[in-house]
Design a protein around this nucleic acid. Structure first.
Lengths: 254, 254
DNA sequence: ACGGCCTGTTGACGCAGATCAAACGGCGTT
DNA sequence: AACGCCGTTTGATCTGCGTCAACAGGCCGT
């Protein structure tokens, strides 16, 4: 799978206009922008397609804008010098990535690669800046997206530094259950190896952790399907939540 | 910090309005806003004072706006259920925190506490939203701040998940040297215990890591002062592989 | 069917860093 | 000078997880 020949140069702006508009309309960022302006912006975007396994953007590269997944799945991952990787996020259709680096003009922190054949829409930074200037609602959305990313990453830091693998796994299963049509029966969205990379452990460790939870009767695992047999104990394995809000009060003058 | 002793006294004696304006003017967020509008915004802010050691905001609380440190130092830290903490950022005067949670209306992810007696300026979310609506430059600044936070946190995730303690320490020392008037002679901004928490290791481990670097002749440590004796080896300790216990030297030219 | 090939499992072992415990040093207080 | 407090150091030990290695099952294309 030596896909090094594939870079982001394979772009075309063709009658993909439809595809681009569709992708942008799905994106939270563009939600409040009218169909008019969305279509106008779409004219300045371009499409890139990637094959399964292909590297779409390398770490350290400067990306010309943000990317929206029209279809397929893209993996955003950090990689260490010995080749092992830590998955940051799996981006599926209707979601985007690269906002922070595009706006700050910084180099990409992660590597983006296609987990399945996909098409991406690239919205050039210049288009973004134009919209941000002229459309306060778009700017508002952008701030929500950026703030959300910051909080997500903060959660990742917390998970990585002061939770152990079993805890991260438990929370991950909980979150899958929460966003599942049938809580209690979840399906891993990707291979266990990738789930492990997402959780910041090796695949061997994930295997053992799953086995352990299964042995305790908390879950039952069959290939990619996980049945949650004891939600209460899964919750306690996740570390349990904290107390309700507490309006901290402090000496406030003026 | 030494130099702030003088300004500290000066600011204390000023009426709050002056303090607030001074703090906002230092803040990157307000840099492009005119003195006029800054002063107007300042009228709607309030001042909080905190004593050394005091908890200013608890994890999980909803904060009414963003906070700007007028003087003093504030520690933002995550804490695990067994009491150990991971420092996310040290906020000193002229810097702010809480942007993401304020704009998203989310609960605070971290705990903020005063490392020294301090005064904070709170800018209510309503004021922020007003400025974001009416002042495109302010909105632009806010996006840069939020994007910067997201990238910082991404770097933290990378450091935490695929670097080891010695590497994080080396990079930390490098970054201190880079922002020091005298690169090669740096001073730890806080106690070693806190530096350890910042780096995501225990204080005992930090002690050993420092000792090890010193034994290798890379640095010399005297209380909070660290002399960098061999910048090249520090760089290699921060980068690819460890130099002294040479196992494999994969020559990688950047 | 056959072999490659990728994913997942399992066991033995090693290591970075946590934990526990004790002692030390600087420094302000009495 | 004696005291206590705090941050730091050092040694001994423990452990979660990575590493290495072997192997089993599923899926593919020739």
């Amino acid at each position: 799978m030596q896909s090094s020949a594939a870079t982001l140069r394979r772009m075309r702006s063709l009658p993909d206009q439809r595809l681009i508009e569709g992708a942008l309309e799905q994106l939270a960022l563009f939600r409040e922008l009218g169909a008019q302006r969305t279509a106008a912006a779409a004219k300045q975007c371009c499409v890139m397609s990637g094959r399964r396994g292909e590297v779409l953007a390398r770490r350290g590269s400067r990306l010309p804008g943000i990317f929206v997944v029209a279809y397929g799945i893209v993996k955003l991952a950090l990689r260490g010098q010995d080749g092992d990787e830590r998955v940051l996020r799996l981006v599926s259709s209707g979601q985007g990535f690269g906002e922070a680096t595009a706006l700050l003009g910084e180099r990409s922190r992660y590597e983006a690669s296609a987990l399945a054949d996909c098409k991406l829409v690239m919205v050039p930074s210049s288009v973004l800046w134009k919209l941000l200037e002229t459309e306060p609602r778009f700017a508002r959305r952008m701030m929500l997206v950026l703030g959300g990313r910051a909080l997500e990453m903060m959660d990742e830091v917390e998970a990585a530094t002061l939770q152990r693998g079993s805890q991260r796994l438990a929370r991950y299963l909980q979150s899958l259950g929460a966003s599942s049509p049938t809580p209690g029966a979840v399906r891993l969205p990707v291979s266990k190896t990738l789930v492990a990379a997402r959780l910041g452990v090796k695949k061997e460790t994930l295997s053992r952790l799953l086995h352990q939870l299964a042995a305790e009767g908390v879950i039952r695992v069959e290939r990619r399907d996980v049945k949650i047999l004891d939600a209460a104990r899964l919750r306690s394995a996740a570390g349990e939540a904290e107390a309700p809000p507490a309006k901290e009060a402090l000496a406030a003058t003026s």
